Amino acid sequence: MKNILENALKNSISYQDYRDLMHQLTAEGKSTGPIQSEELINYSLLNEARMKRLDKTIEIDDEVATEFQKIEEPQIWLVITESWCGDAAQNLPVIHKLAELNDKIQLKLVLRDENLELMDLFLTNNGRSIPKLIVLDNQLNVLNTWGPRPSFATKMVHDYKEKNGSLDAQFKQDLQVWYNKDKGKNVQEDFVNLINSTLIHS
């Protein structure tokens, strides 16, 4: 596993570099990843606009910021993502702002389809669901993971699948409405739990 993590980190980029890449690709009518379908390109265009707005508007609660000051040991937050992923677009701007709260946290991003060995170590219900965040210490021990969605959205998905069998366009629309109303609060709650759990076990 450590070799796979080391290789992924060599391929990783900063959040700003990821945003620059998205901006460049969408300007050229492209998405990340080997498949360049009209659908994925349209999702990427939508996500570029969404992330641009969220980068400016997401606010971190003071109580959350206080909790993040408890982190004293260096951590690497390695996130698996792609430009076409709607959940990544909603959550990455929040994760970026959380990582900025403490200089012990180093946020790194990798593209899923260029790092399938890594992705396959961190499946969700046997699926390559993104975004997936892996919390590492300096020796590349896995301290915790998160993703692909905030806890409340995960429950929404579970409940909808129980009732309807699969996710459809209506659910995806409902999920976006929820994200817009939530404004990153649930991610912040999840990450307070995540870092507190990590501190307890480290």
Results as ranks from 00 to 15, higher is better:
Pro93Trp: 13
Ile95Thr: 11
Ile95Leu: 15
Ile95Tyr: 13
Ala99Asn: 08
Glu100Arg: 11
Glu100Thr: 14
Glu100Cys: 15
Glu100Gln: 15
Leu101Asn: 02
Leu101Gln: 10
Leu101Thr: 04
Asn102Arg: 10
Asn102Ala: 06
Asn102Asp: 08
Lys104Thr: 05
Ile105Tyr: 11
Ile105Lys: 14
Gln106Val: 09
Lys108Gly: 01
Lys108Arg: 15
Leu109Thr: 04
Val110Lys: 00
Val110Asp: 00
Val110Arg: 00
Leu111Glu: 11
Leu111Arg: 02
Leu111Gln: 07
Arg112Pro: 06
Asp113His: 06
Glu114Ala: 14
Leu116Phe: 09
Glu117Ile: 02
Leu118Gln: 06
Met119Pro: 10
Leu123Gly: 05
Asn125Thr: 12
Asn125Met: 07
Asn125Ala: 14
Asn126His: 13
Asn126Cys: 12
Asn126Lys: 15
Gly127Pro: 04
Gly127Trp: 06
Arg128Pro: 12
Arg128Val: 13
Arg128Leu: 04
Ser129Val: 06
Ile130Phe: 01
Ile130Cys: 03
Pro131Gly: 03
Pro131Gln: 03
Lys132Trp: 01
Lys132Asn: 04
Leu133Asn: 03
Leu133Gln: 06
Ile134Thr: 02
Ile134Ser: 00
Val135Gly: 05
Val135Leu: 13
Leu136Tyr: 01
Asn138Tyr: 05
Gln139Asn: 15
Val142Met: 11
Val142Asp: 02
Val142Pro: 03
Thr145Phe: 03
Trp146Asn: 00
Trp146Gln: 00
Pro148His: 10
Pro148Phe: 03
Arg149Cys: 02
Pro150Val: 05
Ser151Gln: 14
Ser151Ala: 15
Ala153Arg: 02
Met156Arg: 04
Met156Gln: 14
Met156Ser: 08
Val157Pro: 08
His158Ile: 15
His158Phe: 14
Tyr160Gln: 12
Lys161Phe: 13
Lys161Gln: 15
Glu162Gly: 11
Gly165Pro: 08
Ser166Glu: 14
Leu167Trp: 12
Leu167His: 07
Leu167Phe: 13
Leu167Lys: 12
Asp168Tyr: 13
Ala169Cys: 04
Lys172Met: 12
Lys172Cys: 10
Gln173Glu: 14
Gln173Trp: 09
Leu175Asn: 06
Gln176Tyr: 13
Val177Lys: 09
Val177Cys: 05
Trp178Ala: 01
Lys181Phe: 05
Lys181Gln: 09
Lys181Tyr: 04
Lys181Ala: 10
Asp182Gln: 01
Asp182Cys: 01
Lys183Asn: 08
Gly184Ser: 07
Gly184His: 00
Val187Gly: 02
Val187Ile: 15
Val187Leu: 04
Val187Glu: 07
Glu189Pro: 00
Glu189Trp: 00
Glu189Gly: 02
Asp190Lys: 00
Asp190Ser: 05
Val192Pro: 02
Val192Leu: 06
Val192Arg: 01
Asn193Pro: 04
Asn193Lys: 07
Ile195Tyr: 03
Ser197Tyr: 11
